[in-house]
Design a protein around this nucleic acid. Structure first.
Length: 781
RNA sequence: GGGCCCGUGGUCUAGUGGUUAUGACGUCUGCUUGACGUGCAGAAGGUCAAGGGUUCGAAUCCCUUCGGGCCCACCA
C-alpha cells in the first residue's frame, strides 16, 4: 500500500503527468549483458535507424515499440538479453540532407570539408533520434551505441570486404550499371523502384539500305538513336519477313544497322520492330550481350548527351535531347505517329529520378554463383510470420551480382590502392580503418605484380548496405572478441520491416554467410508497414507520414505502445487511427482505477488457501491468462498478450469479479477469513496483471508496481510461471457471468437501480458463489 | 503472365471444423452503482465476398468466380 494510502496523489486517471514523473526512473534502468551469466541468451539484431533527416514516421516508432516489447518480455522470461542500439549514419540520404541544409553541392565542395558538415548534421540528427527512442521507452543498450560511420565499424566493413576479396568472393568489371545521374553513382537493383510515367512512344522509319523500302520502329527512347546497334523483328512476323537480314539506315545519323529476327521482338507491340540501343533498358543489355552487338554510349555520367549523339544533341540532358530528336525526326518526315503511353520506368529510390544504364567499372559481390545456397538458407531461417519468407525467396530467384562501389563521399571507403605503374590493386591488411582517397598505402607497400612503390587510392565508398549487412557481426564482436562472438553468434533474432527484405535481410544473410558459413540469426521477425488513416502506406514522398513525437506527447508513451501492440498481429500492416489510440488511453485509465481500488485493500502476507469459490475462479482465470500471455511473448507477438489482458481486465475481472467481492473486501457481513481471502485474491490478480503487461506499458506498470508492491523495479522481475489451470471452474465462471448479465438485464427492464433488491432464485450450479452473488446484486431468494 | 497474402456488423479486428461468430471504435437507450462518466448496464447492427464440393457438422478444409494488396517478370 502507498504511504498515504492513496495512489499517486489520488489522481483519477493515468495521465501524461504521471508518466513523466516515472519516465526518468524507467529509462535509466540499466541492463548489463553478459554472455557468461549462464542464462539462455536472447540477442536482437535490431535495425540501426537511419539518421538521415528522413523524418521518422509513426509506423517506424510503432515497429520499434514492438521490438522493445519483445526485448523487455524476454528479460522478464529470464533470458540474458543482448539488445544493442545502433545508428546507421552512412550514405546518400545524409549527403543530400547536408547539401540542402548548407545550400551546397557535394561535388563542388572539398571532400574533407563536406564530410565534416555531414558529421555535424549526423550528430544533430542522432540526438533527435535518441530523444524519440527515449520518448517511448525504448530499452536497448544506450551505453554502447554503435555507429556505422565510426572508425571501428568502418574497419569491420573494410576488413570483411578484404576477407571476401581474399576468398575470391568479390569481382571487378565494367558492366552496364544502374546509374543515378542525380546521385552520380551506380546503385544496386535493390535500390531501384518503379514508377508509371507518361511517355511518348514514337513510331519512326528507318530506310532499308539499297532499297526504297522503309521499316517502322517504335521507341520510347528516340534520343538513343545514335546508340542503336540493331533492329529486331519477330521471326514469325509476316510483315518483316522480307527485311530480315537486311541492313537499315538510321535516320539523321545514317548509320548502318542489321535487321535481325529474334523472338524478343513481339509482333503485337508497337510496330513489331524494336531498336536495340546501348542502353535503353535491361533487355538491351541482354540482347547486346547475347548477339555481341557493338556498344555505343551516348550519355555521359553527368546525364548529358555526348558528342557521339551528334552536334544537335550533344550537351543536352536526356529529357531535352528526347524533345529535340523528336522534333528533328518530325522535321525530316521520319515520324509516322506518336502515342502517349504509361511506361514503367526504373527510378532511384533515393532521388526518385529515372536511372540510366551506363557501363562503369565497379566492384561486385558474386551472388549469382551462390544463389541456390542462399535460397536454401532462406528456407532454413525461421521466419515469423512464415508467409513473408516468400518475399525473400522471390527476390533471391532474380537477384544478380551486387554492385557495391559508390561514387559518393560519406561512406566507408573502399580500402584499395592501385599501382601507378601497372594498375594492380594493392590490398592492405585487415583490422584497420583505411581512407585511400587521402592516405598513402601502408608503409613498405609494394605492388605484388610489378614491384612498383607508387600508388593511387580508390576514391569511392561502399554501398551503405555493405555496412549495415554486418551489424550481426559487429554487435557480436566478430573481429574484436572471439570468445564473445562464439557465445553470441548466430544471434537469436532479426526484427525488421518487410520493406527492407531485399536489402537488409538479403544482404545480411549473404554477407554473414560468406564470412561465417552460417546464417546470422535463428529467426527473422518481419513486421508489416504503418499505414495512414486511409490505408495508404506512410511515406515522405506521399506527404502522409504522421510525426510520432506529437502523437506520443499528446497521448503518452504507454498509450502509444499499447496501441502499437494491440492494433494488429505482428507481421500485418497496421493503420494509424487517433480514435483507436484514444481507446488505449482509456484502457490505461481502467487499469489505473482497478489498482486504485485494490490499493485500499493491501495484502502483504503469505500465500493462503482461498475460502471462496469466486476467488478460486478468478485465480484460475488469471493462471490461464498467464499461460496465454507467456505463449504470446514466446511467439514474439505482442498482439496476443495486449488483447488477452485487455479482455480479461475489462470484461471479466473488473465487471464480474471485483463487483462480486466488493462487499467481502470491505468486510461487511463476512468473516475475517473470507475478507482476507478476497483481499489476497485481488492482489494476487493485480500483481500478475502488472507483471504481464509491464513489457507493453513500462511506465504505468512501474508506477503501480513501485507504489503497491516493491521498490525493486518491475522490469527486473520474472514473469509469473506457467501453471496448471482448473478448466472446470473457468467454465462455471462463464455461467456465472451469464447470470450476472441476466440479473442486470432484469433490473434494467424493471427500472431498478443496480443496488436495489431483487427476489431471484440462484441457479443450483451457481450456489457455490451464493454469498458473493447475493451481496453483489442484493438478491433475496 | 507467375507467386504470396487478404476479403468477418458503419469502420477496424480476433477466431483455421463442433452449441445462439470475438473484441474495439462509432450509433441508440438508461444509470451518482462504496475504483473509473476516459465510467457502468442494456440494445440495435453480420446471408463470416459469391457459388459449388468434402463432412453428421464449415467463417474455418477443397475447387471455381469476383474484389483488394504486395512481390517478381513483361512493357521497343
Amino acid at each position: 500500500m502507498t504511504e498515504d494510502g492513496k495512489l499517486s496523489g489520488d489522481k483519477k486517471n493515468w495521465s501524461r503527468e504521471l508518466e513523466n514523473q516515472i519516465k526518468e526512473r524507467v529509462n535509466s534502468l540499466s541492463w548489463n549483458f553478459s554472455p557468461y551469466s549462464g542464462k539462455e541468451i536472447f540477442s536482437l539484431d535490431t535495425p540501426p535507424p537511419y539518421t538521415s533527416g528522413r523524418p521518422w514516421h509513426l509506423g517506424a516508432a510503432a515497429q520499434y515499440s514492438k521490438i522493445d516489447i519483445i526485448g523487455r518480455a524476454q528479460r522478464m522470461l529470464g533470458r540474458e538479453v543482448l539488445f544493442p542500439v545502433g545508428m546507421d549514419r552512412n550514405g546518400i540520404p545524409v549527403e543530400r540532407y547536408t547539401e540542402k541544409k548548407y545550400g551546397i553541392r557535394m561535388r563542388d565542395t572539398q571532400r574533407e570539408e563536406f564530410l565534416n558538415l555531414c558529421k555535424t548534421s549526423l550528430d544533430e540528427l542522432e540526438k533527435e533520434m535518441l530523444e524519440i527512442l527515449h520518448s517511448f521507452g525504448y530499452s536497448g543498450d544506450f551505453n554502447n551505441i554503435y555507429r556505422t560511420d565510426s572508425p571501428e565499424y568502418r574497419a569491420l566493413t573494410q576488413s570483411t570486404f578484404i576477407e571476401m576479396w581474399e576468398r575470391g568472393m568479390i569481382t571487378r568489371g565494367t558492366r552496364p550499371s544502374n546509374y543515378c545521374i542525380d546521385c552520380g553513382t551506380t546503385i544496386a537493383d535493390a535500390e531501384i523502384e518503379y514508377a508509371e510515367i507518361d511517355t511518348k512512344l514514337v513510331y519512326f522509319y528507318f530506310k532499308i539500305k539499297d532499297s526504297d523500302d522503309r521499316i517502322l520502329v517504335a521507341s520510347t527512347r528516340p534520343e538513343l538513336l545514335a546508340a542503336c546497334s540493331a533492329i529486331l523483328v519477330n521471326p514469325a512476323d509476316e510483315r518483316f519477313k522480307d527485311f530480315a537480314g537486311k541492313t537499315a539506315i538510321t535516320p539523321l545519323y545514317n548509320k548502318e544497322v542489321k535487321i535481325i529476327p529474334h523472338a524478343y521482338a513481339k509482333a503485337e507491340f508497337g510496330s513489331g520492330a524494336v531498336m536495340i540501343c546501348s542502353y535503353g533498358d535491361y533487355n538491351d543489355v541482354q540482347i547486346i550481350k547475347e548477339l555481341k552487338l557493338e556498344e555505343n554510349i551516348t550519355i555521359n555520367t553527368n546525364g548529358r548527351m555526348n558528342e557521339k549523339a551528334g552536334e544537335k544533341l550533344s550537351g543536352l540532358n536526356v529529357k531535352n535531347a528526347r524533345t529535340e530528336i523528336i522534333k528533328l525526326l518530325q522535321d525530316n518526315d521520319f515520324v509516322e505517329k506518336i502515342e502517349n503511353i504509361k511506361h514503367r520506368t526504373p527510378m532511384c529510390d533515393r532521388s526518385k529520378t529515372p536511372i540510366e544504364i551506363i557501363p562503369l567499372n565497379e566492384y561486385y559481390v558474386k551472388v549469382t554463383e551462390i544463389r541456390d545456397k542462399l535460397e536454401e538458407l532462406a528456407h532454413k531461417l525461421e521466419v515469423t510470420p512464415p508467409q513473408h519468407r516468400q518475399i525473400l525467396i522471390n527476390w533471391l530467384k532474380v537477384s544478380s551480382d551486387w554492385p557495391i562501389s559508390r561514387r559518393r563521399y560519406y561512406g566507408t571507403e573502399i580500402p584499395l590502392w592501385y599501382c601507378n605503374d601497372c594498375g594492380e590493386s594493392y590490398v592492405p591488411e585487415k583490422g584497420k580503418y583505411y581512407r585511400p582517397w587521402r592516405e598513402s598505402p601502408p608503409k613498405n607497400a609494394v605492388c605484388g605484380k610489378c614491384g612498383g612503390k607508387e600508388f593511387t587510392g580508390d576514391d569511392r565508398t561502399f554501398d551503405t548496405w555493405m555496412d549495415s549487412s554486418v551489424s550481426a557481426l559487429y554487435v557480436t564482436k566478430y573481429l574484436s572478441d572471439k570468445d564473445f562472438h562464439g557465445k553470441t553468434y548466430p544471434m537469436t533474432l532479426r526484427p525488421q520491416g518487410v520493406d527492407i527484405i531485399r536489402t537488409w535481410l538479403n544482404y545480411s544473410i549473404l554477407r554473414c554467410y560468406l564470412l561465417t558459413g552460417e546464417l546470422p540469426w535463428k529467426k527473422a521477425w518481419l513486421d508489416g508497414m504503418g499505414l495512414d488513416e486511409h490505408g495508404e502506406k506512410m511515406s515522405k514522398s506521399r506527404g502522409n507520414g504522421v510525426d510520432p513525437t506529437t502523437v506520443i506527447e499528446k497521448y503518452g508513451a504507454d498509450a502509444f505502445r499499447f496501441w502499437a501492440a494491440s492494433e494488429a498481429m505482428a507481421g500485418s500492416n497496421f493503420m494509424f487511427s487517433e480514435s483507436r489510440l484514444q481507446g488505449s488511453t482509456k484502457f490505461l485509465t481502467k487499469l489505473w482505477n482497478v489498482a486504485r481500488l485494490i490499493n485500499q485493500f493491501p495484502y502483504r502476507g503469505e500465500e493462503i488457501e482461498v475460502t471462496s469459490k469466486s476467488d478460486e475462479w478468478i485465480i484460475n482465470y488469471t493462471k490461464k491468462l498467464v499461460n496465454d500471455c507467456r505463449k504470446g511473448y514466446e511467439e514474439l507477438n505482442p498482439f496476443i498478450p495486449s488483447n488477452k489482458i485487455r479482455e480479461f481486465l475489462w470484461n471479466v475481472f473488473a465487471p464480474h469479479y471485483i463487483e462480486l467481492v466488493k462487499a467481502r473486501a470491505y468486510g461487511e457481513g463476512f468473516s475475517g477469513m473470507d475478507k482476507q481471502s478476497a483481499v489476497y485474491t485481488l492482489n494476487y490478480v493485480l500483481k500478475r496483471l502488472i507483471l504481464l503487461i509491464a513489457p507493453i506499458t513500462p511506465f504505468i506498470s512501474e508506477t503501480l508496481w513501485g507504489e503497491l508492491y516493491s521498490k525493486e523495479p518491475v522490469h527486473y522481475q520474472r514473469m509469473p510461471d506457467e501453471c496448471e489451470v482448473n478448466m472446470e471452474i473457468i467454465e462455471l465462471g462463464e455461467k456465472l457471468m451469464e447470470f450476472n448479465s441476466k440479473v442486470w438485464a432484469i433490473k434494467k427492464e424493471k427500472g431498478l437501480s443496480l443496488r436495489e433488491g431483487l427476489k431471484l432464485e440462484i441457479p443450483p450450479e451457481l450456489k457455490v458463489f451464493g454469498n458473493d452473488l447475493k451481496s453483489m446484486h442484493n438478491l433475496t431468494e
